[in-house]
Design a protein around this nucleic acid. Structure first.
Lengths: 222, 222
DNA sequence: TGCGACTTAATTGGCGCCAATTATTGCACA
DNA sequence: TGTGCAATAATTGGCGCCAATTAAGTCGCA
C-alpha cells in the first residue's frame, strides 16, 4: 500500500512512455497538439521527472517532437516524410513475408482469421478506435511470426511514427471494406504459404491505406 | 566566455549522445563494458544530468543497455539478435538500391570512387579505425542518395546497433580485400544503374562481413 | 585455510527547487 | 480603433543534493 507511489515509479520509465504513446495512437492527443508536462503529471499520476523522461524517450523515437523552451508536441509530419515512411514500411513489411510464411503456425493463422472476422464486424458496427485496434492486432500478430524480433520491432516503430498524421485514419467506408477484403486475401495466401503474393498484398495494403485518402491531404500541405 | 559552460549544455542533449556513440563505434568502450557516469562527466566535460540524458537516449536507441541500479553498459548482443540485425539490414539496404540508382548523381559516384580508393589504401597501410571510418563514410554516402531520409536513418540506426559486438571488426586481411573489391564492383554497378546487381552485391557484402568471421564467434556463445 | 556474514565505500537514481524562457494580458499612444 | 510595448503569469528545464542500492573489503568462525 505504501509502495503505491513507489511501484508506480519503478514501472514508469518505459511504461509511462508507452502509455503516452498509446494515448497518441488512440488520438487523445492530435498531431500538432502540445503535451503539457503538468497535465501529464496528474493524468498519469507520475512525477514531473518521470514525465520528462518519458517525453524525451518518445522524442528520440520520433513519435513526438521537442522544441526547446516550448515543450513537446505530437509530431506533425509533412507529406514528404509521410511518403518516406510509407516507402520504408513497404520495404520492411514485404521483406518480412518470406520469414512469416516460413515460421507461422496453423494456429496463428486461425487466430488471424478470427481477427479478420472481428475487423469485418467492426467495420459495420464498431468505433474508429476499435477498428484501429483490431487492425493493429492483426498486423502485429503477422509480424510477430516473421522469426526476427529486430525486424518486428523496427516495423512497429515505423508504424507508430506514421500515426502522428491525419491521413492514417481511414477516410472512407470503401477503404475500410477494401482493408477487410485484403485481410482475408492475406489469410488465403498465408494458408498457401505464398510469400510473393503476400508481399504484393501488403504493398497494396500500405499503399492504399496511406494514399487512397489524398482527398483530404490539402489540409496537410499548409 | 562566460557562456563556455552554458553553450556546452545547449549542444549536449543530442550531441553528447552522438559523441558517446562515436566513442563506442571507435571501440573506446568494448561490448560488456560499464559506462560509469562519473568518468563520462569529466571525459566529456558535461554535468551528471546531461550524461544521464545521453545514456538514456542511447539505451532507447539500443546502442547500450540499462540495468537498474547497476548502470549502463555497451550492449553485448547474442548470436540470435546478431543474425536478426543482419537479416534486417539486408532487407533495408538492398531495398534502398532502387532509390539509389534513381537519385544518385555522377559527382556522388565519383566521390564514392575516391572513398573506395582510400579504403583500398587503408587496407594495406591504415589502422583498424581508419578502415572502419572510411568504410562507414562510403556506405553512408551511398544511402544518403536513396532519396528517402527515413530509410537512410533507419539503416544507420541498425548499423550502429550491430557495432556492439565483437564480430563487426574485420577478422582477416582476406575479408578486407574482399570488401575492397566489393566496393569497386558496387561503383561499377552504380555507373550502369544496375539496381538488382547492386542489391546482390550489398547482400553479399553484409553477409560476408558479418558471417565470414564466425571463426572467432565462440567467444560470443558464452 | 576456506566460507559466510557484516561493515564500509562507491555508484546510481529520484526529486524538488528555482532560474530562464516564452506566452498572454493589459495599457498607452498614434 | 488598431498597433506596439511592457508587465505578469505560466511553463519549461538545469542542476545539486541525498537516499537507495549494489559491490568490495574485512573480520570472525568452523
Amino acid at each position: 500500500m505504501e509502495q503505491s507511489r513507489k511501484s508506480r515509479r519503478v514501472v514508469s520509465r518505459r511504461a509511462l512512455a508507452n502509455e503516452i504513446a498509446q494515448a497518441i495512437r488512440l488520438r487523445m492527443y492530435r498531431p500538432g497538439e502540445w503535451l503539457r508536462q503538468i497535465d501529464l503529471e496528474e493524468k498519469f499520476q507520475a512525477t514531473r521527472f518521470d514525465v520528462r523522461a518519458a517525453l524525451e524517450e518518445l522524442a528520440v523515437r520520433k513519435t513526438i517532437e521537442h522544441v526547446p523552451n516550448r515543450g513537446y508536441r505530437v509530431a506533425e509530419i509533412d507529406l514528404a516524410t509521410y511518403f518516406a515512411i510509407r516507402d520504408t514500411r513497404i520495404i520492411l513489411e514485404t521483406g518480412a513475408m518470406t520469414g512469416v510464411v516460413a515460421h507461422i503456425t496453423e494456429e496463428a493463422i486461425e487466430r488471424l482469421a478470427v481477427l479478420a472476422r472481428e475487423f469485418g464486424e467492426a467495420v459495420v458496427s464498431g468505433t474508429r478506435i476499435e477498428q484501429s485496434e483490431i487492425n493493429g492486432a492483426f498486423h502485429h500478430l503477422i509480424y510477430a511470426h516473421c522469426g526476427n524480433p529486430v525486424l518486428e520491432e523496427t516495423i512497429w516503430a515505423l508504424r507508430d511514427r506514421s500515426r502522428g498524421s491525419q491521413v492514417t485514419v481511414w477516410a472512407s467506408h470503401q477503404a475500410l471494406l477494401a482493408s477487410d477484403r485484403d485481410h482475408h486475401a492475406m489469410i488465403e495466401a498465408l494458408r498457401r504459404r505464398d510469400a510473393p503474393r503476400l508481399a504484393e498484398l501488403i504493398r497494396h495494403h500500405i499503399d492504399k491505406d496511406m494514399v487512397d485518402e489524398t482527398g483530404q491531404l490539402p489540409s496537410l500541405s499548409a
